[in-house]
Structure formats: structure tokens, C-alpha cells
Design a binder for these strands. Structure first.
Lengths: 247, 247
DNA sequence: GGACCTTTGTGTCAAAAATACACTTTGCGA
DNA sequence: TCGCAAAGTGTATTTTTGACACAAAGGTCC
């Protein structure tokens, strides 16, 4: 093997997390407001940070997420590795790194992760962390720090693909939910309209839903029935996937 | 941000490539025979090596692949990042690294890639490279160096998933091929039997195949017709994917 | 040359799934 | 009690799937 000493990469590794939440209407992403650097606007980034020397990648992602948002024990699915040398294209990125990192010019390779959480399970507590994590509707997210926009786009793409192959929603919805809410969830993720009757038929045929006796109360229209997931069947289906789930 | 100096990761990054090839019968993977270390058996690994400081990840993967196998200009799809701290579980791994790396104990994080090539397009030339790259049928691959077995399994899983959503085969087959060959390709990747007539019907309906006048010659049975892909339609379909392609 | 072997290539029918589509029900609020 | 808003429900048509068997073509071997 020839000598590559002076070429060998000596980078930092970070983990960045795309946390999707659903407010029963829109799909949101949990973003960090980076503190204003003098003379520069604040800007938004995915929760993420460098990982430790002896940490498994998945563990690091969870630790970092917890440190920045308080979220705990989230199942994170890997999106992939990002981090081309030109990653620091925006002046804010360089300014922020200079303020915070010992070695701001070191190349950083980041491993992207994503997860789904119920928005009610996580109410951001701006005061309790160094930087405020906030839910932002996905259509309102413009540019992000570093290559975070690319990571977000990849994560969303993966989520869409997965939705066609596996039941999803268990983590994004409260324990009791209505079929309309599940319907809106699918529309929000896929970004298309789905026929109500056909959606219901298809969902019910999967037999992962159990209807509860309970109904909505206080709504100015016909109250809808609540459902919950049948955990057993839901997880069976998660394992096998279904061949065929195209809307 | 609190001080993490003594925890921060200072790893090496490598790229490992899972190159799938199809010999018109079985699915194969291109593996490197690591040189024998005294007292230890040879063992097999994916083609892979450390990446350079200023190199984009994808570029590095292609360079490494080229250096080890001679393959050029291959479209590589990322599988993800691997590399937990316990990656060096086997004695051969440590022995090999000690012989070859300056810093054999440094943590390595590796980015996995996969690709599909025609086996006829690449005939391994054992003499011309430091280590011999050879095609190994996928069922005959047992343990691999490092976490390469895990990377291979992930890559195969991704390939299967992709096969259900996009047409594949363009890269794995010669320009002219028969429907039986394409049929066997799908069976080899998915690892299941597919009904011949139903497979043909489905393939032909996609309208990405053009039948040629040419037929097989010299075969001791009814000669089969050759087809080629309609590049235009094939690539259109690659972009859009199809919702629905479950065998 | 004829028997035989091997692989190609083709069609139909029944079951399941997808699609398109509109009206009644319920409860609240004005 | 009227109106509004969302829930909930069924059918008919088309498309897709899945299961299944036999004739055609060409070489080989005697």
C-alpha cells in the first residue's frame, strides 16, 4: 500500500437528527435556532453535534438529540453520510463554527438520522436548553445551516418511501386518534390528496386498527370515532412489511 | 457549549464498495483477497480504503474502487455509515491493520456503497493489482473482514427494496439479453421463484423493452429472442419510479 | 432420420385490488 | 330550526394478480 499519509482524512464526525412531528394537520420538523452571531441573523439548523470517540453512531445520535432537545429514547433511523469538503458554503456556518469549535476548519462528515414523534409528546421548552428547539411546518423551512437542507430532503424522501412499504403513524399520532387524522397524516407526508373512502377501506383491511367506543366531543360537526393501533399486528406488519402498498 | 475536547472523535473514514455482478445465472459480489498474514489464513473483504482529506465521499468511493479493482466510472449508491467502536472483533482484522496502517487502533467509520455491473464488463485481472479481486457467488460468501458482512447484507437489502420500485438490470446485463436472463436476474436478487408468464407480462407492460430481430444461435433448444432496453423510457421510469411493483 | 431432450414462448380464467364517485348523518352554533 | 362542517358509508368498473399446461424450435445422440 503506497503512502497516503499526507492525504489521509482526519475529520470530525457529527450526527444530525431530522425529527418529524405531526400536529394533526401538518408535518413539522424540530429545528434549533442557532444563536445570533454579532452582525449576522439567527439561522436554523437540525439538532446535531460531534460524536464521541468511543460511542456507537446510533448512541451518539440519541445523546446529541437529547442534549439539544431533551428528547429521550427515540428510535432513530439512519439516512446516510453527508459532508463534502465544500460543506461550509455560507458565511453564517463559518462564523458559527468559529465561535464554538476548537478547530472550525476541520472537515466534518455528518451522519443523518430521522425519527417520528408525536408533537404532543414533545413540547419545546425554550428556557431549559441553551438553544431553543422549535417545531417548524415543513413547507415553511427554507435554507438551513451547513448541508442540513440536503439531509432533511433525504430524510423526507426516505420517509415517503417507507410509508409505501410499512405502516407508519404509530409514533406520530397520539394513542387515540381518528381515521381522518391518520388520513391527513398520510397526505401530509406524501404531499398528495388521497380519496377518503379508499383510504379508509385500505387501512381497515390491514387490521392494525382497533375501533374504540369513544368518540370526539365538543366538535361542531359529527363526532368521529377514535381508534388505536393493535400493537401486536402493527409490529408484525412492521417486520414483514407489505409488498404492495401504493396509493 | 461545554468542553468535549477529550471525548471528541478523531477517526479515520473509509469507503467500502459492494459491487454486484450477474453471470446470467447467479448474483455475485466482487471481493478482495486480503494477503495472508503469517500464521493466519487469507480472508476476504470488500474493496475499500481510507478516503482523502479533500475528497467528496462519492469521489473517494470511486477512487478506492478503481485502485483496488480497476473498475472506472461506476455509479455508486450509498448504503450508509457503519463503524461501531467494536468493529475490530476478529484477530485477522487487527493483524491486517497492523501490517498496513500507521495507526491501526484508530477508530474507523466506513461509508458503504453499492453498485451493479455486468460481469462481462469486468474480468478480474489478478496480476495487475496488489490484491486479487474476484467474483464470488453470493451464497458462497461467509464471514468477511471487519463489519463487511453487515455492509453487504445492508446493500443487498437496499437492492431488493429498490428492485420492487424501480427497473433494474440495465447495468447488470449485456446490451442484448433475453427475457429469461432478465427473469433469472430478478430471481437471483430477490431469492424467490417468479412465474415465467406473469413475469413476462409484467415486464412487457412496462414498455421499457424493445424486442430485436436477433435470436440466440447454437443453443440446443429453441433459441430465444434478444431484447434491449429502451433507454429513454428506462430512465424516465427510473426518475419517477413506479408506485406498484410487487412480485 | 427419428426419437429425445431442453428451453422458449404463449392464453385464459377467477380472484383480488384499485379507482372513481355522492349522499346521509351528526352535533354544534347562530 | 336552519345552516354549517366534517364523518361515515357502498357500488360499479376497470385493472392487476395469480395459478396453471402445452406446443414450438433446435440441437444431440443413436
Amino acid at each position: 500500500m503506497h503512502d497516503k499519509m499526507n492525504h489521509e482524512l482526519n475529520p470530525r464526525i457529527s450526527a444530525d437528527c431530522v425529527i418529524f412531528g405531526f400536529d394533526l394537520n401538518k408535518l413539522n420538523v424540530l429545528l434549533i435556532e442557532r444563536e445570533t452571531v454579532v452582525g449576522l441573523d439567527t439561522y436554523k439548523a437540525l439538532p446535531g453535534d460531534l460524536i464521541f470517540e468511543d460511542e456507537p453512531l446510533d448512541t451518539a445520535a440519541n445523546r446529541v438529540l437529547n442534549e439539544l432537545t431533551g428528547l429521550e429514547n427515540i428510535y432513530l433511523e439512519q439516512v446516510g453520510a453527508f459532508g463534502d469538503p465544500d460543506r461550509l458554503s455560507k458565511p453564517q456556518d463559518r462564523a458559527w463554527l468559529k465561535a464554538v469549535r476548537q478547530d472550525p476548519d476541520a472537515r466534518v462528515i455528518t451522519i443523518g438520522y430521522y425519527s417520528l414523534v408525536g408533537m404532543n409528546d414533545y413540547v419545546p421548552q425554550p428556557a431549559s436548553f441553551a438553544r431553543a428547539a422549535t417545531w417548524i411546518p415543513i413547507e415553511e423551512i427554507g435554507e438551513l445551516a451547513f448541508d442540513h437542507r440536503e439531509i432533511l430532503d433525504s430524510a423526507l424522501k426516505k420517509l415517503k418511501e417507507k410509508l409505501l412499504v410499512q405502516p407508519i403513524g404509530f409514533n406520530l399520532l397520539p394513542e387515540k386518534f381518528t381515521l381522518s387524522q391518520l388520513h391527513r397524516l398520510y397526505e401530509a407526508i406524501l404531499g398528495v390528496e388521497l380519496d377518503k373512502r379508499n383510504f379508509r377501506r385500505k387501512m381497515l383491511k390491514m387490521e392494525i386498527l382497533e375501533s374504540l367506543e369513544e368518540r370526539q366531543e365538543g366538535v361542531p360537526h359529527k363526532p368521529s370515532q377514535f381508534f388505536k393501533f393493535n400493537e401486536q399486528k402493527y409490529h408484525d406488519l412492521l417486520k414483514t412489511g407489505f409488498d404492495n402498498f401504493g396509493f
